[in-house]
Design a protein around this nucleic acid. Sequence first.
DNA 1: ACAAATTTTTAGTTTTGTCTAAATTTAAAT
DNA 2: ATTTAAATTTAGACAAAACTAAAAATTTGT
Lengths: 218, 218
Amino acid sequence: MTLSEEDYIKAIYHLGKGENTTVSTNAVAEQMDTKPSSVTDMVKKLSEKGLLNYRPYKGVSLTEHGQKTALTLVRKHRLWEVFLVEKLGFSWDEVHEVAEQLEHIKSEKLIDSLDKLLDYPEVDPHGDPIPSKKGEFKKAIKKLLSEVPIGKSGICVGVKDSSAPFLKFLDKNNIALGDSVKVLDKEEFDGSLHVRISNKDIHISQQIASNLYLKITE
Amino acid sequence: MTLSEEDYIKAIYHLGKGENTTVSTNAVAEQMDTKPSSVTDMVKKLSEKGLLNYRPYKGVSLTEHGQKTALTLVRKHRLWEVFLVEKLGFSWDEVHEVAEQLEHIKSEKLIDSLDKLLDYPEVDPHGDPIPSKKGEFKKAIKKLLSEVPIGKSGICVGVKDSSAPFLKFLDKNNIALGDSVKVLDKEEFDGSLHVRISNKDIHISQQIASNLYLKITE
DNA sequence: ACAAATTTTTAGTTTTGTCTAAATTTAAAT
DNA sequence: ATTTAAATTTAGACAAAACTAAAAATTTGT
Ligand SMILES: [Mn+2]
Ligand SMILES: [Mn+2]
Ligand SMILES: [Mn+2]
Ligand SMILES: [Mn+2]
């Protein structure tokens, strides 16, 4: 597998949200920041290789083999992200770009040893679960903050948008994974929220709230 | 810089033995395991880019810029090798192949942090010096075991041939970097040596002796 | 000095991954 | 049910990096 092929597989996996749904050529093109015609070419090649099911004009989905490949890549990406944060002192908004490169290094021993060094982590710095070597992982039971009813509490477990600007915003407002969050009130007008985060009451816009995941505790 | 371009720069650096000597097209082709015509093409491109001095039929050498690039790559390669041995439990004959990939990851912060994590090592697992961020490093004062006179002692500090079979051979015979070695006797006939390595007397062939470096102590 | 052998370059292809422009299929709107 | 619009594929081209075969330059041997 080339670097490029691997990135296509991963893109298709993510567009299918982990489920194995069919995704369109245009969606893949947008995700990969390339042109639809390039996607058609690649998708043909990958279905020749048995990684994708492709029906012209109908879209693509991962085969069993493609699914396995995607999970291995996601596992590598997320383990490297943990390494960068835990061992090298990166912040969570800096890891993605580098992990995007590191995920393509070919060495099974490398990944197994890294997993061990990190003491078999189950989630990455953004709260996303890390597949095991066999490709199993717990699907997080998480809810967008914007969908949590008034009065309920939870633990901040992940972000939907993991772009640097958003992560930097969270850092600036002292919001981190693991923080406990309680929804105090909701503004019907603009969907903004009043929440208590680690004993401080703050006001949060709808846009922010719809990019932050909670695990509900009560 | 592409991965391929980087590997050419590194090959030319190594063929020049760190000095900045001119190397031939054929030598590069052999080192890179490719054809001379491919080398000509690449060498033209890299001299366009200002990394190489190239005169048709006369060979190539690194420019100032090329030299700096080569040292950065060597630094990255060797730091990763230390990481693999020190943090992930690889043995010294397993690291080269993986480091050959890792050296191409682009992130200055990554390498600086790795350097710190490893506590600024000065040599890699094969005894080769690691250039500093500025491109400086101690040229090892080392001598091939085969050229050490009878009666002299030294510390085993490196290997010339770092292929897996040779490194495995050394492991099997309990010869490691840091061991003290004394030359007891030399067979004129085949150049083989009688040496004392950590209090054990053993017999070593000329071929082995000419691939093991000592730092002379007395 | 000159022919032979070796080294290096040039010319012409190939593969991979991308692009633009045009053609085709599918979906939406009247 | 047509027409229009949107999505997708095809055709043709290009850059990177490699290869083979042939030509040119350099080195070697006598
Ligand atoms: Mn990637
Ligand atoms: Mn992540
Ligand atoms: Mn390499
Ligand atoms: Mn080494």
